[in-house]
């Protein structure tokens, strides 16, 4: 069968041709093509990974922002509360102080009144004493003639003396 008997010439040419084709294609065709395809694929994969990363970063940033906002709000609330407390405290303190002060003033006033009252009483007592002495002097000086008249005189005198 001529179909199955290999032909030497064709064999030699074929071997040479395929070897040359293999070398040429490997060097000048497959290397750049396969290299470019790989480069492109890694480029795309990198870009996708980058995008994913950026997305994750954005999400992180957003959650950070939210946390920050939350914290700020909490802080504001805290500050407000503190301020309110401080104000209340100050008012209370002031009230307390005022009360104490007032009490003190009242006590002092009362003490002063008492003191003046005492002084006045002393004064009155002194003046009563003096008057008594004066009246007695006057009585003694007029030489009491009758008992009736003496009595009326004493009455008059005491009428004048009024303990305020």
């Amino acid at each position: 069968m001529k179909l199955l008997t290999p032909d030497l010439g064709l064999f030699v040419w074929m071997l040479v041709a395929f070897s040359v084709v293999l070398v040429i294609l490997a060097k000048f065709a497959w290397k750049p093509i396969v290299g470019a395809l790989k480069e492109r694929e890694t480029g795309i994969a990198d870009s996708l990974a980058q995008a994913e990363k950026v997305k994750a970063e954005m999400a992180q940033l957003q959650s950070d922002n939210e946390a920050l906002l939350q914290k700020a709000q909490e802080e504001r609330a805290q500050l407000l509360k503190e301020a309110r407390d401080a104000r209340d405290k100050m008012i209370n303190e002031a009230k307390e102080q005022a009360k104490i002060e007032a009490n003190k003033i009242i006590a002092e006033a009362q003490a002063a009144i008492q003191h003046q009252k005492n002084a006045a009483m002393t004064d009155v007592k002194n003046q009563v004493g003096n008057l008594v002495i004066e009246v007695a002097t006057k009585v003694l000086g007029r030489e009491l003639t009758n008992a009736g008249e003496q009595e009326r005189f004493i009455q008059d005198l005491t009428k004048d003396i009024k303990l305020n």
């Binding site: 074929m14 041709a17 294609l25 470019a36």
Partner: peptide, 22 residues
């Protein structure tokens, strides 16, 4: 052989022109 050589020339030129594009 002749046809194979022709085919090779066509194949190599197609692939190398593609490679140059890349």
């Amino acid at each position: 052989v002749a046809q194979m050589l022709l085919a090779i020339i066509v194949l190599v030129s197609i692939l190398i022109s593609a490679a140059n594009k890349y």
